[in-house]
Amino acid sequence: MTADSPSPALIEVNGLAASYGHVAALKPIDLRVEEGEFVTVLGPNGAGKTTLLRAMSRLIASDGKIKFKGRDITGVPTHRLAKLGIIMVQEGRGLFSEMTVQENLQLGAYGLGGSRDQVEGRFEQVFRLFPRLRERAGQVAASMSGGEQQMLAVGRALMAGPKLLMLDEPSLGLAPMVAAGILDTLGELNRSGLGILLVEQKAPQALKLARRVYILSSGYMRAELPAQDIKSHHDLARYYFH
């Protein structure tokens, strides 16, 4: 919670640390995202960005505390986090590749239970945002282009009605134009009030969208600063190799 903000942060982690065997991939770090805020975590390859999101999603074991809207969710299992509204778009999209676009989207709405009207409403919302998915509804996810797959990954996450959307390098492997389109959509979603935590290696576009930036390197959180304070790659490199 910030000093001038009476309401609790959307998500707040304190002393979050994770390791793979004896290798500490994430040293104890603090991070928060306010309601409706767009926050970016930047870092080079191997910085611990994916580990951070996985630890926050409880996909891997970790130490430290995690609070969501002021509620301690440290011990809450992954499947319950989705129902609370914490949704992660994994690196490599994590699509169910043998299933159709429609089936992937239906699985996104899994937490909504059997409410058909609500699911239909979400379908319309996603198809409005990504008209290409409507055209491809019956197509198997594996047969789509990388850009379309990323649209599907984001669309599937939106089907759950997230309050916090965490994305792990959504621009990875995409042509610059396609990646820019995806990130523009994220900006649009954020303007409609969705809290976003974006993890990226490529800085320029992510910096345009974010209000605050965290810089992660070798598992350490090197800095937290307003996005406009990073003017060039040199500024970033200074933190990366701190």
């Binding site: 994994q90 299933m99 937490g111």
Partner: peptide, 19 residues
């Protein structure tokens, strides 16, 4: 669909709320 999601990726399925 939940079963087939588990077949594809267990972690991915859990991240969508599937127990």
């Amino acid at each position: 669909r939940a079963l087939r999601a588990i077949s594809s990726t267990e972690l991915g399925a859990a991240a969508l709320g599937i127990r």
